[in-house]
């Protein structure tokens, strides 16, 4: 149970940091709405509903990327990550807490993005909401691990999208599929499978990314 107490302490700190500095979340909100507006102008008027769904997923993906790029910003200053790594808690607790923080940010961004999408483009069905929730889990799990990797490299901001995008192509497939196909169950199941595989893998390997 101390594991979850550690996770709670770390996640609370992330939320506190964001409430105080307010860098990440406002940027994500503004970005996702701007992206939707840009997409309106980049879609020909006779484009199908499915095309706008695809663009919505791109907007969500890049919003997640924007948030992930900042995920370890506070830790990079002053080498705080080393301080956390030296604490006796299991290192995966750091990953889990950071994941929860990323999930909260993504959830808030999508709570704005989906109504905006419904307003500008197409109505939002339950499949889309379910797919977004499942996709968030996978994006946060993989993204947090890769953000920690990118933070350890020289290229940082440049590297994260390169590491991230090939790995989340399956999430896009599952997300778009669940929204445009008549029978979304297979796609939602696929997203759940992705979440499971990559969450376990990220949880188990985080220790090696932050410590030698």
């Amino acid at each position: 149970m101390t594991y979850f107490a550690d996770v709670a302490a770390l996640a609370r700190k992330d939320i506190l940091l964001e409430l105080r500095s307010r860098d990440t979340l406002p940027a994500m909100l503004l970005f996702v709405v701007s992206a939707l507006v840009v997409f309106h102008f980049s879609l020909p008027s006779d484009a199908s509903a499915a095309a706008s769904t695809g663009l919505l997923w791109i907007a969500l993906l890049f919003t997640a990327l924007l948030g992930l790029g900042r995920a370890f910003a506070a830790e990079r200053e002053q080498r705080v990550l080393d301080g956390l790594v030296l604490a006796p808690c299991d290192r995966s607790a750091i990953w889990l807490a950071k994941c929860l923080g990323v999930l909260v940010f993504l959830g808030v961004a999508e709570a704005v993005a989906l109504p905006a999408y419904a307003l500008f483009f197409e109505p939002v069905g339950w499949e889309l909401v379910a797919a977004v929730v499942l996709a968030d889990l996978g994006l946060a799990a993989v993204g947090t691990l890769l953000a920690a990797m990118a933070a350890a490299s020289r290229a940082r901001e440049l590297l994260l999208p390169l590491l991230f995008l090939p790995l989340v192509i399956p999430v896009v497939v599952g997300g778009v599929g669940a929204t445009v196909v008549d029978d979304p169950a297979r796609y939602l199941g696929f997203l759940a499978l992705y979440d499971l595989i990559f969450a376990i893998l990220s949880w188990a390997s985080f220790e090696y990314v932050v410590a030698e």
Binding site: A74, Q78, D82, P88
Partner: peptide
Amino acid sequence: RGRIGYLAHEALVYKELTALENLDLYGRL
């Protein structure tokens, strides 16, 4: 590692948090 104390060049604390909040976090961990 929980019984080692390591003082580095950097303070290893969050700039955006107060002194008390930083120590409280480490105290919990």
